[in-house]
Design a protein around this nucleic acid. Sequence first.
DNA 1: CGGGGCGTTGACTGAGATCAATTATGGTGG
DNA 2: CCACCATAATTGATCTCAGTCAACGCCCCG
Lengths: 246, 246
Amino acid sequence: MASNDDVADPGSPMVRKLRYLAPLTEAELALLQRACTNTIRIEADQDIVQEGSRPKECTLLLEGFACRYHLLPDGRRQILSFQFPGDFIDSHSLVLPEMDHSLAAITPCTVSTVPHAVMNEITAHHPRIARALWKETMIDASVFRQRITSLGRRNAYQRVAHLMCEVFVRLQAVGLARGMAVDWPMTQTEISDALGLSVVHVNRTLQALRRAGLITLIEAQLMILDWEGLAEAGGFDERYLHLRGN
Amino acid sequence: MASNDDVADPGSPMVRKLRYLAPLTEAELALLQRACTNTIRIEADQDIVQEGSRPKECTLLLEGFACRYHLLPDGRRQILSFQFPGDFIDSHSLVLPEMDHSLAAITPCTVSTVPHAVMNEITAHHPRIARALWKETMIDASVFRQRITSLGRRNAYQRVAHLMCEVFVRLQAVGLARGMAVDWPMTQTEISDALGLSVVHVNRTLQALRRAGLITLIEAQLMILDWEGLAEAGGFDERYLHLRGN
DNA sequence: CGGGGCGTTGACTGAGATCAATTATGGTGG
DNA sequence: CCACCATAATTGATCTCAGTCAACGCCCCG
């Protein structure tokens, strides 16, 4: 096994993600990695997939942060979820012909596209891979459900705290946390679009979280000073992310 | 083909649902129907599956209305989605070991349970069935996303209108609409828990929808008087339900 | 016929939206 | 290196949608 570090190489975010999604063989892992050689660079704030389109390939996020969103008739935006490296951000189009939401890059992103024909071939012959993708869809749905609960029943302070916990745990799971710190490239406008709040109120809520000594957020770096406190504030329980136990 | 009606029998809600989920063969349909012979009756307001449990079987809703929900630490409830006859309400447990939400009966329900072992056997040998279930998971996720947009960016009036449109279209798709009328057993408390509103405000919003001549809602029967108007009010576009085109 | 669930109404309150500036901050070209 | 501009963050003042509180009516059912 290749290792390019002092400790055993834990693998790229994609490999890490697949590892907790399903117990795949080395051959299956290699097959997927070979399928993902065609990479594309996407600028920040550009769409990766658009609502109403009918993609002919699946998209995997290799580097950078992205988001799913709906556009409303009046031009407002609802961000549905944030997506991180290792996420199969568009297995959607493999199963449903038309996109019902858009995907956009928050930071510059590197994505890999795999033609549907190739994916269909792979999933048909490797039921464990198909199962892994289905499982990822299920976990995504679980994340959506938590967001529903946040928007329906949690106040601004709780929503922001919960989102920070979620982002931290998900990034940590793919090896993108440095201690208690993670990249946080999302602007306050993006947070507000994700949590159904106004920018002004997000700003005040962030200040409240800082004042409470739970976090610092400087230069797009989120540092969690008090994990227990933040999780408590957000009513966060990581079990819905299904990171443990296959 | 069996027919027990004047017109060609369009099938049970389950068969109707499978028909638009995937082009299954008669053999595959029959296989699924044979797997669903073990039926259970569940009283209104009883849990079907509980958060934190580890079910050993999948559950299919044959009759009655159910809902998914989260319980918050303070006892409040967030209803995540409503489920109708024909829905595979618990393929979740087939893929993820532990339930991250609960399912409850809104009306008395008839469900069928299929052991995971049987489902695993079926999906392993019939990739089209596995694909159909994955597709249903995807459509569920799409419904969750719309709910996020409702809670994040739509006001009370729009939320209720949107929900009514969704419920109507989904019930119509499985043959449970009578003209422009459908059963509406959800209490105002349930609507409020689903849409992140207070009961009082749901009550006033329903009155506003009646006053606007869009609906009547009497004795658990919802009648849509002005479909165009209701869809317009809710910003409803049925494409996210993916009912057409496989 | 009494109690509990559900729906309805009125009065008051408040979390968060909106409006309107002002102040960083970072990238760009001269 | 600095002026310039756009984007992002911040602040204060005001407003509003929806929540909360508190009754009351209705209907079903034991």
